[in-house]
Computed example of a mutant assay.
Amino acid sequence: MSTSPLPGDASNDPTDDQTGRFVVQPNGRVRPLSPHLQVWRWHVTMFASILNRMTGGALSVGAGLVFLWLLALAFGPDAYATFTDWMGSPLGLFVWFGLTVALCLHLAGGVRHLIWDAAVGLSPKTADALSWASIIGGVLIAVAFWALLFASGRIAL
Rank of each mutant, 00 (worst) to 15 (best):
F97L: 15
L114E: 03
D117H: 08
F94H: 10
L107V: 14
G110Q: 08
V101L: 15
L91I: 14
R112K: 09
C104S: 15
V101P: 03
G121H: 07
F97R: 07
L93F: 05
A119L: 13
L93N: 08
D117W: 04
L93M: 11
A102E: 06
S123A: 12
V95K: 00
L99P: 03
A119M: 13
A102L: 03
C104P: 01
L91T: 12
V95A: 11
F97M: 13
G109S: 04
A119K: 12
L105W: 09
V111Q: 00
L107T: 12
F97N: 11
V101C: 07
F97I: 15
T100N: 12
L105Y: 04
A119Q: 11
P124E: 05
G121S: 00
V111N: 03
G110D: 07
L99N: 05
G98F: 10
L103C: 09
G109E: 06
P124V: 09
C104I: 10
G92F: 09
V95S: 00
L99V: 12
C104Y: 00
V120G: 06
L107R: 02
G109H: 02
T100S: 14
A119N: 11
L122G: 06
F94R: 10
T100M: 08
V120N: 04
K125S: 11
A102I: 10
G110R: 07
T100Q: 05
A119E: 14
P124L: 08
W116R: 08
L93C: 02
W96N: 01
F97T: 14
G109T: 03
F97K: 06
A108E: 12
R112M: 04
F97Q: 05
A102K: 09
V101T: 06
S123F: 03
G109Q: 01
G110Y: 08
K125V: 13
A119D: 14
L114R: 10
G110H: 04
L122Q: 10
G109D: 02
V101D: 08
K125D: 10
F94G: 14
A108W: 08
L107H: 02
A118T: 07
S123L: 01
A108G: 00
L93I: 15
D117Y: 04
F94Q: 12
W116G: 07
W96V: 15
A118L: 15
L122M: 00
V111W: 01
D117I: 01
L91V: 15
G121R: 06
L91H: 04
C104V: 13
G98R: 03
V111A: 12
L122F: 07
H106P: 03
R112V: 09
V101R: 03
A108V: 06
G110K: 02
G109I: 11
C104H: 04
G98I: 01
H113V: 12
V120H: 00
L99C: 10
V101S: 06
